[in-house]
Write a protein that binds this DNA or RNA. Structure first.
Length: 238
DNA sequence: GAACCGATTTCCT
DNA sequence: GGAAATCGGTTCT
């Protein structure tokens, strides 16, 4: 695969256009033989302040300020108190827009991804001594086995899983993903493969009214096993 | 300063 | 197939 930073010029315009361009690009963490690399296969567009499904709907705030800034930066936030989501900022400064990275197809560094996933589970279990929780060591061991048995393709097949696999957290907020020197970044991928794009409504935005609820602003690579698509792909490894 | 709630995943039934 | 887990931001008092 070739190694060039993802051009900011592809992101600083119309978000819906940028969504199609971002599909197929590589998401990279680190460098060298331990680098984690994955192909972006599913994204969701959130564009403008009038998009009532977007975090920008409330106007500029401390949380979503990055969305109002230059394209190519990482907008990272926590949802449901436990999962992080990675977004790539789009549009010109002043116009809030972002692409949520929903699914990535692992290409390299799968062992590191599994390790990161176990770390993520460990951090969660140690922080949550709830109710009659099962013994932690047993829980962790079970998680380790489960994660070891996961198919590569399902290591980052969801927004929260992408962040777990790539160790993405608050410290990555605001990172310039188009900058070659960033530990977390975007790179262009080879165009050798031919694939088509499918679209559908965004998920998890039940609070949004029409027409936003039904806007077909989710984009994925047709038939890709790592993308949720129409029939979900998040089944255990076989 | 205190409710309220979400761009989700996992585990159990 | 469904509920639980969990916390920071937004909003309202």
């Amino acid at each position: 695969m070739d190694c060039a930073p993802f051009s900011r010029a592809l992101l600083d315009g119309d978000t819906l256009e940028a969504a199609r361009l971002l599909l197929g690009a590589s998401l990279v963490r680190g460098s060298g033989f331990r680098a984690r690399v994955g192909r972006i296969v599913e994204v969701e567009a959130y564009v403008g302040q009038d998009d009532l499904a977007s975090h920008a709907r409330v106007g500029r705030s401390k949380r979503n300020a990055v969305m109002f800034g230059p394209a190519g930066l990482a907008y990272v936030y926590l949802v449901y108190g436990m999962h992080y989501c990675l977004n790539v900022v789009t549009e010109q400064p002043g116009r809030p827009g972002a692409l949520l990275v929903r699914a990535v197809e692992p290409l390299a560094g799968m062992d590191e991804m599994r390790r990161a996933r176990v770390e993520w589970v460990a951090a969660r279990t140690s922080r949550a001594p709830v109710r009659g929780a099962p013994a932690e060591p047993a829980r962790l061991e079970a998680a380790g086995e489960r994660i070891a048995a996961l198919a590569d393709v399902s290591l980052a097949s969801g927004p929260g899983l992408v962040c777990a696999a790539f160790s993405i957290g608050r410290r990555d907020a605001g990172t310039d993903l188009c900058e070659w020197s960033s530990d977390l970044r975007l790179e262009t991928a080879g165009q050798d493969e031919a694939w088509s794009i499918e679209t559908g409504p965004r998920v998890g935005i039940g609070y949004a009214p029409e027409p936003w609820l039904s806007k077909p602003w989710r984009y994925w690579i047709k038939g890709n096993a790592a993308a949720s698509g129409t029939a979900n792909s998040r089944r255990r490894a076989g």
